[in-house]
Design a binder for these strands. Structure first.
Lengths: 164, 164
DNA sequence: GCCCGGTGCATGACACGTCAAGCATCTGTA
DNA sequence: TACAGATGCTTGACGTGTCATGCACCGGGC
C-alpha cells in the first residue's frame, strides 16, 4: 500500500529540499556569525551562553548537573566537559551535592555573572541584527510554531522510525 | 533618537526569543538526530554528506577545492581538513590541478559513490521522518522563505553591524 | 554489615571546526 | 630575469561534541 501524498519513500521534492537545506545551512551560518561576535565582544563562546543564562536566572541557587543538562538540552557528558572548561576560566564552580554525594552542584561565580551581564546586551543586539529585525512578526511566529512542531515530534517515543 | 518599533536596543521580546531559541535549539537537535542515523546507517558523518552530494552531482568531473568550498558554504581550511579525513577513508581523492599547480582537484572514488548512493535513500527517509512529513506545505514554504531572507541578510556587506 | 544493580558524573579517545600561520605557485611589473 | 605581492591550499594548535567507559556512591535485599 502506498500513500500518494504523505510518508512517501522517494527523494525529497524541491520545496522539501529547499526548506531542509535552508534550515540546516542558514542556521549554521547564523550560529557561526553570532558565536564570532559573542566571542569578540565578551570572550564567551556560543556554548558558554546558555549555561550562563540558566545559572544566572537561578540567582543564588545551585543546580544539579543533570538538571542543568536537561534544561539546556545537552548530554550529561557534554555538560561535564564544558563545565570543566568554564571552571578553569573562573566562570562557574562546582561543589559536592551534600544529600547525595554522587551529585554535583553547579553555580555561577561573580566573575561569571558580570561577564554574562556585559555579554547579554551585545548579544541581544546581535540577535536583533542577524535575526529578529530581519523577519516580520508573522515570519517570527510561523518560525516559532514550526520549530515547536518539530521539537514535539523529536521527543515522542519512536521518533526517527517510519511507523510506531 | 529611539525608533519605537524597529531596531530597538533592549532585550528581545517573548516572540523573538521563542523564535530564536527554537531555531537554534531545535535545529541542533535535528542535526544531531539526523547525523546519528546517517552514521549508523552508512558510516557517513553529517559533514561527509554535502561533500559527497556535490561531488556525485558532478558525475566524472572534478572540482577545484575552492569551488567546492564555495558551493557547500564552508571555509577553505575546514574543507581541507575534512577532505584529508575522507581521503584517508577512501571516499574521495585529490590530485594536482594541471593548469595551476597550486590548485587541487577533488573527485569522488567508486567506493565513495557507492557508499553515498546507499546512504542517500536512508537519509531522504530520515529527513522525511524528522522534518518534511511533520510540517505542512505552507510551513515548509514559510520556513524556506524565512531562511532565504536570513541568508540574504547575512551576505550583504556590513551585516552584523547596526547601521551601514 | 555485605553485596548488587542502578545512578550521577567524570574521563579518554577521537572526529570536527576555527583561527592563524605556513608554503608553494602564479602574475604583474620592471 | 627577478622579485613582490596575491592566490590556493595545507597545517598546527586548540576549543568543542560524541561515544564508550570508568568510578564513586546510593538504595534495597539478605
Amino acid at each position: 500500500m502506498e500513500e500518494p501524498t504523505d510518508g512517501r519513500d522517494g527523494a525529497l521534492d524541491p520545496l522539501e529540499l529547499r526548506a531542509w537545506r535552508g534550515l540546516i545551512e542558514t542556521t549554521a551560518l547564523l550560529r557561526r556569525r553570532s558565536d564570532q561576535l559573542l566571542l569578540a565582544d565578551s570572550g564567551l563562546s556560543g556554548s558558554d551562553y546558555p549555561v550562563l543564562v540558566t545559572l544566572h536566572e537561578l540567582g543564588d541557587a545551585t543546580v544539579r548537573s543533570t538538571e542543568l543538562a536537561e534544561r539546556i538540552g545537552w548530554e550529561q557528558s557534554r555538560l561535564s566537559h564544558h563545565l570543566a572548561r568554564m571552571e578553569r576560566r573562573g566562570l562557574v564552580g562546582r561543589r559536592r551535592h551534600e544529600p547525595d554525594n554522587r551529585g554535583s552542584e553547579v553555580f555561577i561565580t561573580d566573575e561569571g555573572r558580570s561577564v554574562f551581564l556585559a555579554a547579554a546586551k551585545a548579544h541581544s543586539q546581535t540577535v536583533r541584527t542577524l535575526f529578529a529585525d530581519v523577519l516580520s512578526r508573522q515570519q517570527l511566529a510561523a518560525l516559532a510554531d514550526a520549530m515547536e512542531t518539530l521539537a514535539r515530534n523529536l521527543t515522542v517515543p519512536g521518533a526517527g522510525t517510519t511507523e510506531g
